[in-house]
């Protein structure tokens, strides 16, 4: 009974704060960036807009649900690794894009169609140049992602395509790995654990928990250039699967 009450309170407070933060925060962030964009180049304007999304993501996933939800990132040393990277991570929850938005890189996420249909958030995603993989023919998708990488923008992809119903790691799609093979940028595998119920698939109910995000050592082009797209996607899938096992304590390093 006490736990249920705690859960209701947590969700009630979170969603009230989330609505307030979105209603106030998004127009404020957008207005600041729009004002700055008058005086700077389009490229720098996009950079600032993506930075604003990162701040918004930080607020939504780290600040608002605290202390019920705690988020820990590991191996995010940007001084040693400048990027841009092709970040590839497992997909467990609707909170994954918010977690990825907080990575300390300028980035664009490859998302499904539905986030673009969300009010306000969909507008922000489009404005920041996020890509809807299912709406683009592969050639166009490849060109857009490669152009972004050349500009110094990292790409975040969820190659499972959708959240698995049981939390297991699904099969990977090869699109982003084909882009990696043709563009030559490093692939950075990322493992997310602990957010299976924040929120679970098919519900908006958040449960308290600890989310861990581990950035694994990246694969340089020299490491993977001789692999086929199929072999590459399965190799990265294996790396992420083992990383998750290590994080869960089921496997040692």
């Amino acid at each position: 009974m006490k736990e249920t009450l705690k859960l209701i309170c947590f969700n009630f407070i979170f969603y009230i704060l989330f609505l307030l933060f979105s209603i106030i925060g998004i127009p404020v962030f957008s207005a600041i960036v729009a004002f700055q964009a008058i005086f700077i180049s389009h490229r720098n304007g996009m950079k600032k807009f993506r930075r604003a999304i990162a701040w918004y993501g930080l607020g939504v996933i780290k600040v608002l649900p605290f202390p019920f939800v705690r988020v820990f990132y590991k191996n995010l040393d940007t001084t040693a690794e400048k990027g841009p990277f092709i970040f590839v991570c497992n997909h467990r929850s609707a909170s994954d894009p918010f977690l990825m938005a907080c990575l300390p890189y300028e980035l664009v996420q490859i998302v499904n169609i539905w986030p673009f249909k969300l009010p306000v958030l969909g507008f922000m995603a489009r404005a920041a140049g996020y890509l809807s993989v299912r709406e683009l023919p592969f050639e166009e998708f490849s060109k857009k992602t490669t152009d972004l990488l050349h500009e110094g923008v990292s790409i975040v992809a969820f190659p499972e395509g959708t959240r698995s119903a049981d939390g297991s790691l699904g099969q990977f799609h090869s699109s982003i790995f084909r882009v990696a093979l043709s563009s030559g940028y490093p692939i950075s595998p990322i493992c997310i654990t602990g957010n299976e119920n924040i929120p679970a698939r098919g519900t908006l109910l958040l449960k308290p928990g600890t989310i861990k995000i581990h950035k694994l050592p990246h694969l340089k082009f020299e490491d993977y250039k001789n692999l086929t797209p199929f072999k590459l996607k399965n190799s990265v899938r294996q790396i992420i699967a083992e990383g998750i096992e290590v994080m869960k304590g089921k496997k040692s390093l």
């Binding site: 592969f138 099969q171 799609h173 699109s175 797209p229 199929f230 072999k231």
Partner: peptide, 24 residues
Amino acid sequence: FEIEKEKLKPEMNIFLDLGLDSLD
């Protein structure tokens, strides 16, 4: 695709079991 011989059975779903996608 470097798929192991043991996995190559007639009932295997090429998408779900063998992991191919539309581009593959």
